[in-house]
């Protein structure tokens, strides 16, 4: 067990859970992902993950774990829930605000599907940047130059737009 675990946890937990939530589109499973990531960090040795690199490591780990979760199809349950709500809305059994929430939830699902289809380095850089990490932090976490971070994030945003505007 790492001695710096609690200090790192209290410093970075919210950020890491936020990264996972950003990928998953919901905070529901983000806590589980954050727990798994910190558990892995707890078992790492300080030589493998030095304390000063912990924040970037944790954020990358949270992104990958959440993306894997998206890709593994375990989001099926959420989709089925959404479909159930939509069916209810279509049959007029629910109030109009439920129909609105269906639209929102479908868009969220499309965004996550698009995110999961992006090349992994692009998706990771995109999520890290939009989670508030600086270019220098993203660069260090992904072994890129700060200039490449701009290029990678730009490509990801452009690809996301193309994915979502595709008929």
């Amino acid at each position: 067990m790492r001695r710096d675990l609690e200090a790192v946890f209290r410093r970075d937990y919210s950020l890491v859970a936020g990264v996972a939530a950003r990928v998953l589109g919901s905070p529901t499973q983000a806590d589980d992902v954050a727990q798994e990531v910190f558990l892995s960090f707890a078992r790492s040795s300080p030589s493998a993950v030095p304390a000063d690199q912990a924040r970037g490591w944790l954020c990358v780990a949270a992104t990958h774990t959440a993306l894997n979760l998206l890709r593994s199809g375990r989001r099926r349950i959420a989709r089925e829930d959404a479909a159930g709500t939509r069916d209810a809305a279509l049959t007029g059994e629910t109030a109009p605000d439920v129909a609105d929430s269906v639209v929102v939830s479908e868009e969220r699902a499309r965004v996550r599907a698009a995110l999961a289809r992006l090349p992994r380095p692009q998706a990771t850089a995109l999520v890290l940047r939009h989670s508030g990490l600086s270019y220098a932090e993203v660069a260090a976490a992904l072994h890129l130059s700060p200039t490449s971070v701009g290029t990678t994030v730009r490509r990801a945003e452009s690809a996301l737009r193309e994915e979502l505007t595709r008929p």
Binding site: Q29, S40, S44, T65, R74
Partner: peptide
């Protein structure tokens, strides 16, 4: 909680 979604590093 997140089976199969191995953490990385």
């Amino acid at each position: 909680a997140a089976d199969g979604a191995r953490v990385v590093a």
